[in-house]
């Protein structure tokens, strides 16, 4: 479920890491641009029209499985932008440096929060993380610089 290199060069796009047929379809409702194709069966895997997707990230906040990410390889000369769902408190703030982790939980580098999107009551907060381009395809979790989950309290 990865757009090709050509599409990544064109701007922000959603990456659906939803590879198992489970009864779940809120992503189809979440997209205002028709990029998530309508489900025939609620157990279908989501199908994304990469040309219709503009990487807005609405689906990221709506996916119950926290399985959707947005990658923008065109963010700047040397940095990419990663939008990821984040359900831990305290929420990082704009400007915070964060530690970046891959799918296995291995720390692979650092990034910087450029925006925190919190909208709907039930929507998952979405972090916009600026990071090195070569990390964007691997990073799936971030933690504050100090502690990383070892906070007091």
């Amino acid at each position: 479920m990865m757009p090709d290199e050509e599409r990544l060069k064109q701007g922000p796009v959603a990456i659906f890491e939803c590879l198992q047929e489970i009864p779940c379809d809120p992503c189809a409702d979440a997209c205002q641009f028709g990029a998530v194709l309508a489900f025939q069966d609620i157990n279908d895997l989501p199908q994304l029209d990469y040309d219709a997707c503009n990487g807005c990230g609405n689906c990221v906040s709506r996916c119950p499985g926290l399985a959707i990410f947005v990658i923008d390889m065109t963010w700047s000369e040397d940095k990419a932008l990663l939008k990821l769902p984040y359900e831990l408190l305290p929420l990082p703030q704009k400007g915070d440096e964060v530690r970046c982790f891959d799918r296995e939980g291995t720390e692979v580098g650092q990034g910087r929060i450029v925006r925190v999107v919190q909208s709907l009551r039930v929507g998952t907060p979405v972090l916009w993380v600026e990071l090195d381009k070569e990390l964007a395809l691997d990073v799936r979790h971030v933690a504050p610089l100090s502690g990383g989950g070892e906070r007091d309290g």
């Binding site: 939803c18 499985g65 982790f101 891959d102 799918r103 989950g149």
Partner: peptide, 29 residues
Amino acid sequence: DVEVVAVVEAAPHIGGYAVHASKIRRMGV
């Protein structure tokens, strides 16, 4: 903010949804 040292599963496969497993794997469990 509680540490989860590991999840052990007697079956040879994770029984729950893969997306739930991914959420804790990327947090290092």
